Amino acid sequence: MAHPLSADALVSALQAEGVTVVEHAGWRTHNRAGHGAWGPVNGVIIHHTVTSGTTSSVEMCFNGYAALPGPLCHGVIAKDGTVHLVGNGRANHAGSGDGDVLRAVVAETALPAPNENDTDGNVHFYGFECVNLGDGKDPWPDVQLEAMVRTSAALCRAHGWSAHSVIGHKEWTNTKIDPRGFTMADFRTRVATRLGKTTTPNSGSGSGSGSTKPTYQPFPGADWFKKKPRSAIVTALGRRLVAVGCSAYTSGPGPQWTEADRLSYAKWQRKLGYTGTAADGWPGAKSWAALKIPYSS
């Protein structure tokens, strides 16, 4: 079960992934609260807008229209790769879809073809509308596709998900055709490749120039640790665990992930109040953020 990211955490995750972010006025409190639940979240849905032009597309997604009030997504990804945040919380983007698809996303397994619309997707998915006419002819600039990949990867990294947690709207319900112009299989391959790379943070919201090191190390994803990495990130993690009184080390810590690191992290999880499998020593996004590990690479 994953709790939705706060507005600050979402912006930080996107910027750490190298995404240029523009915050639409009022987006942090703009949602469909009172019209259904928001969370637990399980994945990301990619849409196309069936519009052209950044300003009009962003305004449409922020305001919605008479039959479907906004926000119509959490962010609009423009042709130039800029991500315009328009909503924080429940948004009218996914609609009803197939519960079997949701179960496959949660399990991170192959998706079944949707054939029922029995589940409220607005509860469980972040949604990003990507500016495109959706006619199969309107091009997808690589800078836009790359921003879509990085946005998806940012959320997967923050929640410890794999690329299997990213789906197209047409994969959620058989009533939709978006996105058109690329395959979601290829898109997920790009997301998976991105998740295997270290993050490249931007200098700040709305800025497309330069890069700076973040104060704290972005979460590298749950699967990263199970590959037994050797990295300066592991050393930095161990030093923080020692500093907060959660050491199970007999030597070190060092750059190689070991059982001592896992046992030490389990102590940290228990210190935060986690129990059972939630305190198994494998890092998760929320406990990682709470530990405030200094940026190392």
Rank of each mutant, 00 (worst) to 15 (best):
A2L: 06
L5T: 03
A16T: 06
T20P: 00
V22I: 11
H24W: 06
R28S: 15
G43P: 03
T49A: 09
S52G: 08
S52P: 04
G53I: 14
G53W: 03
G53P: 09
T54M: 03
G81C: 00
T82R: 00
V83K: 02
N88A: 14
R90A: 12
N92G: 08
V101Q: 08
L102G: 07
A104D: 13
A107V: 09
A107Q: 11
E108Y: 15
P112H: 07
N115E: 10
N115A: 13
N117Q: 15
D120V: 06
V123M: 09
V123D: 11
V123Q: 14
G127L: 04
V131M: 13
W140D: 04
V143K: 14
T151I: 12
L155E: 07
R157Q: 02
R157A: 06
A163P: 14
H164Q: 13
G168Y: 06
E171K: 05
W172N: 04
I177Q: 07
D178Y: 08
F182C: 04
T183K: 10
T193M: 06
G196C: 06
K197G: 07
T200P: 00
G208T: 14
K213G: 12
Y216F: 14
Q217T: 03
P218N: 08
F219S: 00
A222K: 11
A222G: 02
W224A: 10
K227L: 14
A232W: 10
V234S: 10
L241Y: 03
G245S: 11
G245D: 12
P253G: 12
P255W: 01
T258H: 05
T258L: 10
E259I: 11
G273A: 12
A278M: 01
A279H: 01
D280G: 11
G281A: 13
P283L: 08
A290R: 03
P294S: 03
